[in-house]
């Protein structure tokens, strides 16, 4: 050790790295729910199983909506790096609307299941289903609130450095939820309909 100051430590983007680590913890969280679903998906307790309950076309629509919203979130980021505030706001708005549409379709499915006697109280399988898919939906809601707040910030103070960082984080979050959804679509809906 010496007392002369050489160079400052490299200013790595701690926030970005920290957010990645957070995403990994969230990944483990979802992994626990997936594992639970895998254990319980046959525990229908005399009730209907996944093959009887799931209606694929609306879920496919949900999937495309969410994938598209990930794409538009990417376009918003590209616009942000070009410094085009209006395009950023526009694409964020599109992303927001698509996300809300996804959430609406999901709630519609939940509502349909619950009102036809197949709520989360029906069986271990349905508890696991509602929790896994619902947790994803809850994340989507958080993402929507975040996006809403961020839009007002960008609207007011423009594409400042700190707003750019926030945009990067929210888009990471959004893509992450997209990936989780791909797994839900595959493991819960596609494999469930086959069985």
């Amino acid at each position: 050790m010496s007392v002369v100051r050489a160079v400052a430590p490299p200013d790595n983007d701690k926030t970005l790295f920290g957010f990645w680590v957070y995403l990994m913890t969230d990944c483990v969280f979802f992994a626990s729910l997936f594992a639970t679903y895998a254990v319980l998906h046959t525990s229908t307790f005399g009730g209907p199983g996944s093959a009887q309950l799931f209606d694929l076309p609306p879920v496919l629509a949900e999937t495309f909506i969410l994938l598209t919203s990930s794409f538009t979130a990417g376009l918003a980021m590209l616009a942000a790096h070009r410094g085009n505030k209006h395009q950023v706001l526009g694409w964020l708005m599109v992303t927001f609307v698509l996300g809300a549409a996804f959430l609406g379709l999901e709630l519609k499915e939940f509502h349909h299941l619950a009102t036809t006697g197949n709520s989360w109280r029906r069986s271990g399988f349905l508890s696991a289903f509602f929790t896994l898919v619902g947790t994803h939906g809850l994340h989507i809601s958080v993402g929507l609130v975040w996006m809403g707040v961020l839009m007002t910030k960008v609207w007011r103070s423009g594409l400042t450095a700190v707003n750019l960082k926030r945009l990067t984080l929210v888009s990471l979050f959004w893509h992450f939820l997209d990936i989780i959804w791909i797994f839900i679509f595959t493991m819960v809906y596609l494999m469930g309909s086959l069985s």
Binding site: T36, V39, L40, S43, T44, F45, W120, R121, R122, S123, G124, F125, S127, A128, F130, T131
Partner: peptide
């Protein structure tokens, strides 16, 4: 919420 993840009945484990 009356779910059945770990209950003794309802398909819990």
């Amino acid at each position: 919420l009356g779910m059945h993840f770990f209950t003794a009945t309802g398909g819990g484990n």
